[in-house]
């Protein structure tokens, strides 16, 4: 669909079945470098499942996931993260009992070169690595306005701050592609507005490509270059914000849900 022959992320006719249920059917999306792309659709449409396939939580029943020109289908989540794909979770999955600082430090571990003996015995190489990790985490904490929470247990933070921490943690893995699963869930319009700017800001600063799932339409319409719409696992529409907004199938899908509700 785009002239760019080399998207950063591409899913090729990805299908996944859970027993009799086809949660995602023939999903083919492309995300080009530097874009912000949204995945929308009613509840249960298969959006989170698509994220889970891209990040290796599930292996698809059929189809391929290509990232940065490499076939990553069936790789494990940690391998995919190491290649530069980071994510947040719809139901916030922080390390609840650990501090804010530890949460972000953990996300630096994947780039560590020292082995366990070097780490435990504090070899100079490890000391240098630990120092660099601490600096990086310190920078992220400042940038995300988490300084005053630094030593607090993650579960004790206000909801919005937890969401911010989850993004900070994802960035600590040094991703090229960031997947955000409903980052504005539970936020009021003002917070959503702030988040919108914030996503743009970090995207530019860290040279990211973003794929996001969101129900807040103002955020989606404002921020994303392109949108894919899923319903019952099918891709019912794709295109720019206006194209999608005026698509009768999309209107029907959303209205259909409201009627049913």
């Amino acid at each position: 669909m785009t002239t760019n022959s080399n998207p950063l992320l591409e899913t090729q006719e990805v299908t996944i079945k859970f027993g009799g249920l086809t949660a995602v059917n023939n999903l083919s999306i492309e995300v080009n470098k530097g874009e912000i792309v949204a995945l929308i659709g009613p509840n249960g449409a298969g959006k989170t499942t698509a994220f889970n396939i891209i990040t290796g939580v599930y292996a698809p029943t059929k189809g391929k996931v290509i990232y940065d020109g490499k076939d990553i289908t069936g790789l494990k989540p940690d391998q995919i993260t190491r290649m530069g794909v980071a994510r947040t979770f719809q139901n916030i999955r922080l390390f609840k009992k650990l501090s804010v600082w530890e949460n972000i430090m953990i996300a630096c571990h994947l780039r560590l070169q020292s082995n366990f003996a070097g780490a435990a015995l504090r070899f100079p190489k490890y000391r240098a690595e630990e120092k660099r990790m601490r600096e990086k985490v310190h920078r992220l904490i400042e940038e995300f306005g988490l300084s005053r929470y630094q030593d607090d247990q993650a579960s004790s933070l206000p909801y919005g701050v937890q969401r911010r921490l989850e993004i900070a943690r994802a960035l600590a893995t040094e991703p090229k592609l960031l997947l955000l699963d409903e980052p504005a869930a539970g936020m009021n319009p003002k917070e959503t507005e702030e988040l919108t700017h914030f996503i743009r800001e970090i995207k530019d600063k860290y040279d990211l490509t973003v794929l996001l799932i969101e129900h807040h339409m103002d955020l989606v319409m404002e921020i994303s270059q392109r949108i894919y719409v899923l319903d019952f696992g099918e891709t019912i529409a794709k295109g720019t914000a206006e194209e999608v907004q005026n698509d009768p199938k999309v209107i029907e899908a959303y209205l259909g849900v409201e009627e049913g509700a």
Binding site: R93, K97, I106, A107, H109, Y126, E130, M133, T173
Partner: peptide, 25 residues
Amino acid sequence: NSSYGRAFKAIREDEIAAEAMGINL
């Protein structure tokens, strides 16, 4: 108290999140 220890604790707290942070479980 090293990075490995933090990784262990991450696994204890939430395996799915730990794996998503690039930790080989």
